[in-house]
Computed example of a mutant assay.
Amino acid sequence: MWVWLAVSFSALLHINAAYRGPQWQFYLFKPLTIVLLLATAFQFGSGDFYQQVIVAGLVCSVVGDIFLMLPKDRFVAGLASFLLAHVVYSFAFWGELAAPIVWWLPALLGGAGIIVYLLLLPSLGRLAIPVAVYVAVILQMTWAAGEYWLTTRTGAGLAAFAGALMFLVSDTLLALDRFRGNFRAATGSIMTTYYLSQSLLVISVLLR
């Protein structure tokens, strides 16, 4: 219980600082929130391959967070870090399949991804290919998490799928804010869904 209060408090401090300051609070609590989740997964997990891979994905996420919050734009480096995190998470999810693949899920996710990408495309410029690759990888990660749940019907699988979906929502909001125009609620919406996604992935470790 206490660890989740600490995670929630840290996340709220970061989001509040994004709007009101101080700057040191913004820089401290963004990565600290994920570090707390990482420590939780590491300490309370079962020690199996799934836990180890999720922990590795959280480490990549911390690196990505640091790149994205630096004063000088490190968007591509942050994109690469989270791309690696999604690849790592995918290994964990695909390793849990317990039945044949459900093919309607990738069709649904792929259709949604194409619509979002086409909406972003006019504003992407030289980032068109990197963003396309990123979209494909995060959709594949979400598909893998969905298959994990659909083929096992476990609480851990449901938490993983919900976390992947939240990650998809968070990254979509981030892309829309960056490439289609800023909106005031962007930071709060992006970071809330992001922290929820990572928390749910950690919960999927704890439920095993």
Rank of each mutant, 00 (worst) to 15 (best):
V63F: 14
V135R: 05
Q198T: 11
S8C: 10
V3L: 09
A41W: 05
Y27Q: 03
V135S: 02
Y50R: 12
A145H: 12
K30Y: 10
F179M: 11
G95R: 09
Q23K: 13
I101A: 11
A145N: 08
L37Q: 02
L119D: 03
K30V: 04
L176P: 02
L174E: 01
Y117S: 04
A6T: 00
A185Y: 13
Q140D: 00
A132M: 11
Q43K: 03
A85G: 10
L79G: 01
D177Y: 13
L83F: 11
T142E: 08
W103N: 00
A162C: 14
P122N: 05
M166N: 08
F26H: 11
S204F: 05
M191R: 02
D48F: 15
V88G: 03
P31L: 05
K72H: 03
Q43R: 07
G111K: 12
G155I: 15
L165V: 15
L105I: 08
P130Y: 06
T187C: 11
R126P: 10
L196H: 08
A186Y: 13
R74N: 01
R208T: 07
A98V: 15
T40E: 13
N182Y: 15
F49V: 15
I34L: 10
F161K: 09
R153I: 09
V205I: 15
L58D: 05
I190S: 01
S189I: 13
V202L: 07
M141N: 01
F44L: 05
S46V: 00
Q52C: 07
Y194P: 11
F161N: 07
V35G: 03
V62W: 05
K30M: 02
S199C: 05
R178L: 06
A136M: 00
F91Y: 12
Y195I: 03
I66H: 09
L97Q: 11
A85L: 08
P31C: 06
I114T: 01
V202R: 02
Y19S: 10
I129W: 12
T151N: 04
Y148G: 01
S189A: 14
I129V: 15
H14K: 02
L79P: 02
W4P: 04
E147A: 11
R126A: 03
Y195Q: 02
Q198M: 09
L58C: 04
P31Y: 10
T151G: 04
V59P: 06
T172R: 00
F49G: 09
G113F: 12
A160F: 14
L108T: 02
G125K: 15
G45S: 04
T151V: 14
A144G: 00
L200I: 13
W104P: 00
L109C: 01
G78R: 03
A107L: 08
L158D: 07
G64T: 09
P106R: 00
T187W: 12
L105Y: 13
M191T: 05
A99C: 13
Q51S: 11
G47M: 07
I190T: 09
V3N: 03
L118H: 06
A39S: 03
M166E: 08
G188C: 05
F161Y: 15
L109W: 14
A98M: 12
F49N: 14
G110M: 05
A56D: 09
D171V: 08
F9R: 09
L150R: 07
T142F: 13
T33Q: 01
T40Y: 14
W94K: 01
R74T: 00
L13H: 12
W4G: 08
Q198E: 06
C60P: 08
T152F: 03
L127H: 06
Y19R: 03
L158P: 09
L165Y: 13
V88E: 10
G64Y: 05
